[in-house]
Simulated assay, not measured.
Amino acid sequence: MKLLLLCLGLTLVCAQEGTSDVIAGEWYSILLASDHREKIEENGSMRVFVEHIDVLENSSLSFKFHTKNSEPCSVFSTDDGNNKFRILQVNYSHHIIFYLENFSDSYQLLELYGRNEFVEICQKYGIVKENVIDLTKVDRCFQARGNGVA
């Protein structure tokens, strides 16, 4: 199962003392990229949305994902084969970039996860949560950028 592979692949990530306190918690999927686009497009096997990362007693990581295929959002439970999984970049307060290399179907996947501390910062300045707009869910005029790609 893919979740087991992800946990095993990240066993060493939390080997340092104190890491578990900073990596565990809520995360949000921001960007996905793959050299096999069909894997991350709608109904793709790797179109997953992270909700939570936990650190297990053996220092491996456990992820709670959701996927949205032909049915409403459900807990992620597909298996996409033999994977090598590692962290490319991390700022535990803000973001993590994961790199996955799949050897069964021969593809690569990069995932950017972020924290949602922005809402807490807004609330400190008197801006209520209802007045925060998630721009990742709207058309951000990418087509207007220099390369014309949406």
Rank of each mutant, 00 (worst) to 15 (best):
A24P: 01
C7L: 09
Y125F: 13
W27V: 05
N43L: 10
R37V: 14
T11W: 02
K39Y: 10
G148S: 01
E26R: 04
C7P: 05
L56C: 12
D80E: 13
G148L: 02
C122F: 13
K39R: 12
S59E: 08
V13K: 08
T67S: 01
S34G: 01
G148W: 00
N91K: 14
L6S: 03
V149P: 00
V48I: 02
K68L: 06
N43P: 02
L31V: 04
L10D: 07
S106I: 10
V22M: 01
K84H: 12
K124F: 07
E26M: 09
K2S: 08
E38I: 15
S104Q: 05
F142T: 14
L31M: 08
E120N: 10
Q89C: 13
S59Y: 12
K64N: 09
N147M: 04
C141N: 14
V138W: 07
E111D: 11
S93E: 14
V13H: 15
V75S: 04
G44A: 09
N91F: 11
R37M: 09
T78I: 08
I97S: 04
V48N: 03
N69K: 06
K84Q: 10
N82I: 12
D80Y: 08
H94D: 13
C141G: 12
H94C: 04
V75C: 03
L100P: 07
V22R: 08
V55H: 09
V138I: 11
S104I: 03
F63M: 02
V138Q: 04
E57L: 15
D105V: 06
L56K: 10
W27D: 01
G9E: 00
Y107D: 07
I53Y: 00
C122T: 14
Y125K: 12
S59G: 04
E41I: 09
V149K: 11
Y125L: 14
L112D: 00
C14K: 00
L10W: 05
Q123A: 06
G44N: 02
I23W: 08
R140A: 15
G25H: 01
Y113L: 14
C14P: 03
L10M: 15
R140W: 12
K2G: 07
L56S: 11
E117C: 06
N116E: 14
R115F: 00
S77Q: 02
K39C: 12
E17N: 11
R140V: 15
E26P: 06
W27R: 06
L100W: 03
V119M: 04
A144V: 15
S34V: 01
G44I: 11
V138S: 01
Q89H: 13
L4D: 10
E101N: 14
K68N: 06
Q108K: 15
S77I: 00
K137M: 09
S77Y: 00
V50E: 00
D139W: 02
